[in-house]
């Protein structure tokens, strides 16, 4: 069984008027099925309002399903008694780097999670050290988060989650507010944790180039999963991606255009090396 199993997951937002009567119902997540195996690197693509962030908040039990079930590490998120252990096992990193750092010193912030779950003092220190080293921020442990770059702040946020020793990390658009350097930094860190520590990663993003190295990709639109497959399978459907207004990388786009113009180039080109190879073979 997978570490995350969503079955016909539905989430509805109720908009109420001043008297508390329901004005309208918006279905943000619409019968989504998802199965993630331990150790996988999964990406969920989609533009704003596609329901991808709402889905993410379910995995951390910040939101509960209106219909359907969601199991995280075998535990049902809708059972209240499971809440803490689910949050401990499925850590979450958010979009805005400033609004998720609680403490004024890096190491104290990383220690915040372990403190909350009652880890003994000495172990907190070893966990903080391990977590900060795993994201390459150990030498900044006594710095103020305000002096760090966006990418560094996000790495501190990831360390804060790592210190809780989770089985899986959900990154909810962690790069949307960063510059290109910061974006690379964060994605690289996520891959490293996946590879070296075996942490399951769920990356939510609207940047296509960030999902190229994932094991599996889901594309969401209007609350439903509209495409799923390996990156190559997804990237070979350029027209569909364009229809969902996703940002197809230039090389993939160019390869597709050339193929349509009659050249002999395989579908689903991911990198420029691949295109070069296809052109010069």
């Amino acid at each position: 069984m997978g570490i995350i199993e969503a079955k016909d997951l539905v989430h509805e937002y109720y908009r109420r008027d001043e008297e508390g009567n329901v004005e309208s119902i918006e279905t943000a997540v619409d019968h989504v099925n998802l199965s993630v195996q331990p150790g996988q690197f999964i990406s969920i693509l989609g533009h704003n309002g596609s329901g991808k962030s709402t889905l993410a908040k379910h995995i951390n039990a910040l939101l509960l399903p209106t219909e359907g079930t969601l199991l995280v590490d075998g535990k049902d998120t809708s059972v209240e008694a499971n809440e803490l252990s689910i949050r401990k096992n499925a850590g979450m990193v958010f979009q805005n780097p400033d609004n998720q750092i609680i403490a004024s010193v890096v190491e104290e912030d990383v220690g915040f999670g372990p403190e909350n779950i009652g880890v003994p003092t000495e172990e907190i220190w070893t966990r903080v050290e391990k977590a900060l080293k795993s994201v390459g921020m150990w030498e900044y442990r006594t710095h103020s988060p305000n002096r760090l770059s966006g990418g560094q702040k996000q790495r501190v946020a990831i360390a804060g989650v790592m210190a809780m020793e989770p089985k899986c990390i959900i990154l909810d658009e962690p790069t949307a507010m960063l510059d290109p350097d910061g974006r690379k930094e964060v994605i690289k860190t996520a891959h490293e944790l996946n590879r070296t520590k075996g942490v399951t990663i769920i990356l939510i993003t609207h940047y296509m180039e960030e999902v190229v190295d994932s094991d599996y990709v889901y594309v969401m639109e209007k609350g439903s999963v509209v495409m799923k497959g390996t990156p190559r399978e997804i990237f070979s459907q350029v027209d569909a991606l364009k229809q969902y207004r996703l940002d197809v990388p230039q090389v993939t786009l160019l390869a597709d255009e050339l193929r349509k113009a009659g050249m002999d180039i395989p579908a689903g080109i991911l990198t420029r090396e691949e295109l070069l190879e296809a052109l010069c073979h």
Partner: peptide
Amino acid sequence: GLAAPQVTYLMHDLYDQGY
């Protein structure tokens, strides 16, 4: 720390290989 568009790289690669 600034990358040119992907296409630029590809065209230079092709050019360097003699096309």
